[in-house]
Design a protein around this nucleic acid. Structure first.
Lengths: 194, 194
DNA sequence: CTAATATACGGAGGATTCCTCCGTTTACAA
DNA sequence: TTGTAAACGGAGGAATCCTCCGTATATTAG
């Protein structure tokens, strides 16, 4: 018979759909970073080079779009950690990753309240992303400890908290540059005492 | 002549205007805390028991309203510090104030991105409020140091950063309770070594 | 390669929300 | 009490959101 595996006949997603989705995410991330969560969605569609209909098909609500950008950021961070670990000396991998994390915070901050106000979902969202990020920095720090570049008693989470805390306290235009300088200071301060 | 002091003939503000303004601020603070910065302003006016026209006269833009809520919060914090200093033992005044600060962050966080996206103004806004808050916690800590309850080498700003950082990292429903427990831990950890 | 068709596309326009404008009301000074 | 500056409310034009559907295109079977 020809009828085998009938219940699993999924097509693979169309290439143009995939392209448009990515184009929208990219434009949304840029727009959120620049102007916060209250961007004009009709304009966003235009910037991404698609129709509004396409935007709303991929992301039915503003919140869905925000969430997607957020998730993409977290995933990118996790992937980047693995990639840097493979390609760079431990201490440099950690340093680079922390700087990328600063970029991530820049978008996350602007959309955090929107995430918070989503009923039902946010805590799970945060829990999941928290785990991913925690795993990422833990493995980066572990490698740097193993190579002797970082003190063994350093809590990886302290680094995260320091970054996030500074991001909040200093809201000057110079914010990002200053946070990145702080990364260097933190890394230097985390070296073993001689 | 009767013409003296002519250039300073300001009426005092009408009582109803004052009342409506406060009613709007109160409703706005509640709404921001509950649902973030994207509240429906027509509804907000209704909740405050005034017409939309009144709302827009007092706060011409959404941002103006957000800023007013923010400023009111900062002022309240500064006043509260003085009040607690007068009424309570140093260490308890500090502890209480930090817990009130946590409440304050709960609103501030929801509107922070909106504050950030105001062009031109935000850094000045933050700078001013930063000074007020810094002064408040500095004097609270100074008193507690003088009374011997807190280590002299403690940087008051570390306490603020810790609070703000935790507020970001932990976004669970339990968030506020957890932040307040942290206050107790911070205070305990700031005591002098024996 | 061609045809068949599921899938995605764009954007017009109805629904919603924002905010201006002005005729009416009210608090204050004399 | 009366005059008047100040404030009030809310109708409705402007701006934004988002649904709906006729058209276009990628994919697959033959």
């Amino acid at each position: 018979m020809t009828g085998r595996a009938e219940e699993a006949k999924e097509r693979k997603p169309r290439a143009d759909a995939q392209r448009n989705r990515e184009s929208l995410l990219k434009a949304a991330k840029a727009a959120f970073t620049r102007r916060g969560a209250e961007i004009n969605l009709d304009d966003l569609a235009k910037e991404a080079g698609v129709g509004v209909g396409t935007l709303y098909r991929h992301f039915p609500t503003r919140d869905a779009l925000i969430e997607a950008v957020y998730r993409a950021g977290v995933k990118e961070l996790a992937d980047m950690a693995a990639q840097l670990s493979a390609a760079r000396p431990p201490i440099e991998a950690l340093r680079e990753w922390m700087k990328i994390f600063v970029d991530y915070i820049a978008t996350k901050h602007l959309i955090a309240p929107a995430l918070n106000s989503m009923v039902g979902g946010p805590s799970q969202l945060y829990a999941e992303s928290g785990t991913q990020i925690k795993t990422a920095i833990e493995s980066l720090v572990a490698r740097a400890v193993a190579s002797g570049d970082i003190r063994p008693d350093l809590d990886p989470f302290d680094l995260l908290r320091a970054l996030v805390g500074v991001a909040n306290v200093a809201a000057s235009p110079d914010w990002e540059a200053s946070a990145k300088r702080l990364v260097d200071i933190l890394v230097a301060g985390s070296r073993p005492v001689e």
